[in-house]
Simulated scan of single mutants.
Amino acid sequence: MRRDVPLLLVLASGLALAACGQQTEPPASHARPTSSDDPRFQPLAAYDMPDDDGLAVGRARWTLARECMVRLGFDSLKDLDIDPPPAWPKRPAGSGVLMVVAYSSDNFRYGVQDPEEAARYGYQGAQAEYERLYPEKKWTLSEHLALTGEFVGDDPKTVHGHRIPKRGCLGDADRTVFGSNRQDRKDPILNLETKSLRQGMRDLAWKKADKAWSVCMRKAGYHYATPKDAETGRDRDTPELQRRLADPQYAPDEPTAPERKTAIADARCKQKTGYVRTVHAIDVRIQNQLIPKNRTKLEEQRRWNRDATRKAHDILEDRS
């Protein structure tokens, strides 16, 4: 299963107030790769929710959230289109809070890889992928708060005379489908995927791949030790963040020219040095080592996902 995970960083008056990650449902249109030669292949994915199940869970979740919103007085949302499930609701612009959103996808686990895609999206390929899969809808502030329960400062905790449930209507739906809010539960798959990357980056072969990539980048005029440094691009991000803080309405639709040029060079150097093939092999090896050591937790997660899938199908059948 591929994950698209927006991380929401809430900023107001230049101060970080809160941060939370919202995991979305996997897309149904992408089959899980089965060949270890495919850089998208991850051994841990065998314990994750299959794509079709994820789509059913997403529909059930938004079905319940839509019903909850109508109960809270949002009658105009009774016919909200939830197929495919909408993107995670963003706080509307002009509400006095700046939200910086970071996106993650298994397709970009080792960073940008395709020069043509880099020329179009820079380092925002994961965001573009997410937006293709999950249609974005503009919400009013009251709708956003009622859906998410993401309160900042003096945000009202009630709407139309009704108290907003914990974590909003989407959180209420999660408690019905999953039995709890997913943000409150540690996902061993995500934890082990992160652990595998961290261990892999300490591997001598991975460091050698980083060095070869870095040498290639220097020849192209860039001085980054690792692909992550290039993606983070502090030399590019600092002025960008300053502009966002100075003007909350500023929301560029396209990556900047410097970002695109860096991403193109990054992808080309990965291809020239065989970077992805090397680090993926290390990642797969480490995941295969981690699985038997954590099989109990992984099997529990698989059962949890299956229970949620059965519940989701029951919800959808009851309303068909």
Results as ranks from 00 to 15, higher is better:
Leu17Gln: 10
Val5Gly: 00
Arg61Lys: 15
His30Thr: 12
Lys261Arg: 15
His30Phe: 12
Thr194Gly: 14
Ser196Gln: 08
Cys68Gly: 06
Lys166Tyr: 01
Phe151Lys: 03
Ile82Asp: 13
Gly111Asp: 05
His160Cys: 01
Arg185Thr: 14
Pro26Met: 05
Ala60Lys: 00
Lys272Met: 07
Arg268Trp: 04
Glu136Phe: 07
Gln199Pro: 00
Gly122Val: 08
Asp314Gln: 15
His162Pro: 02
Glu240Tyr: 05
Met99Trp: 02
Arg61Val: 02
Pro239Gly: 11
Pro156Ala: 11
Thr309Leu: 11
Lys208Arg: 12
Val5Lys: 01
Thr34His: 11
Val177Pro: 00
Leu190Cys: 03
Lys219Thr: 10
Thr226Asn: 05
Asp37His: 13
Ala128Tyr: 02
Asn181His: 07
Val101Tyr: 07
Tyr123Ala: 05
Asp266Ala: 07
Arg295Cys: 07
Glu299Arg: 13
Gly96Lys: 13
Leu55Ser: 03
Cys269Phe: 06
Pro255Glu: 07
Ser13Asn: 15
Ala119Leu: 12
Val70Leu: 07
Leu9Lys: 10
Lys186Gln: 09
Leu192Ile: 12
Cys216Asp: 10
Val112Lys: 00
Cys68Trp: 01
Pro188Asp: 01
Asp81Met: 03
His313Gly: 00
Tyr130Thr: 02
Val112Leu: 02
Leu80Arg: 05
Ser180Ala: 14
Asp187Glu: 12
Asn305Tyr: 07
Arg71Gln: 13
Glu150Lys: 07
Arg218Pro: 00
Asp114Pro: 08
Asn107Val: 09
Asp314Met: 10
Leu9Phe: 13
Thr140Lys: 06
Asp314Ala: 15
Leu133Thr: 15
Leu11Pro: 00
Pro84Gln: 04
Gln249Asp: 11
Ser214Phe: 03
Cys169Ser: 07
Leu9Ile: 13
Pro26Thr: 06
Asp266Ser: 08
Gln271Ser: 09
Gln113Thr: 14
Leu192Gln: 04
Gln242His: 00
Trp213Pro: 04
Arg234Ala: 09
Asp51Gly: 08
Lys90His: 11
Leu197Thr: 05
Glu231His: 08
Arg61Thr: 09
Glu131Gly: 03
Ala281Glu: 13
Ala45Pro: 05
Ala118Asp: 06
Leu204Gln: 14
Glu129Val: 06
Cys20Gln: 13
Pro252Glu: 03
Glu67Cys: 03
Val10Glu: 09
Thr63Trp: 10
Asp229Val: 04
